[in-house]
């Protein structure tokens, strides 16, 4: 067996010793340190499951910009009277109520055009007389 004479051979001895000492130091860490390493590892892995922190603010900003764009495009004007029914709807609603509450039967409304013509004839006769 040759004695270590070359630099590489001499290095091998102390390098092996250094590596062994470092391995031993890593192996025999105390329980408190190992617990903190464990917690750190789990915390690092847990962040993968949660959404990125910037996602919520970015979403809020995007929604605000979109809302502003919609209102600007359509010329948003708050109308206080818009809660009332439009005229046509109001008329239709009134006529519907009259129709339901009337004592006349459905036949009367089916011949409504005839009665309108009859009224017109009566009016002409009144004007002629």
């Amino acid at each position: 067996m040759s004695t270590p004479s070359r630099p590489d051979d001499r290095d091998a001895a102390w390098v092996a010793q250094a590596r062994s000492a470092l391995d031993e130091s890593a192996r025999s860490l105390d329980a408190a340190t190992l617990s903190r390493l464990n917690q750190a590892r789990h915390a690092a892995l847990a962040q993968r499951k949660s959404p990125p922190r910037w996602l919520l603010p970015a979403g809020l900003v995007s929604a605000s910009v979109l809302l502003l764009a919609v209102f600007t495009w359509h010329g948003y004007r708050p109308d206080v009277g818009s809660a009332e029914f439009p005229l046509s709807a109001k008329s239709a609603s009134s006529s519907d109520i009259d129709l339901v509450s009337s004592d006349d039967g459905p036949e009367f409304y089916q011949d409504l055009e005839f009665y309108a013509w009859l009224d017109a004839q009566d009016a002409d006769q009144d004007l002629g007389s």
Binding site: A21, L22, S25
Partner: peptide, 19 residues
């Protein structure tokens, strides 16, 4: 110190210090 804590040798202490 970390290395002395585990090995308790003079060599381990010197390795730690040298590094």
């Amino acid at each position: 110190g970390p290395l002395l804590r585990l090995a308790g040798t003079e060599a381990a202490r010197d390795i730690d210090a040298a590094l």
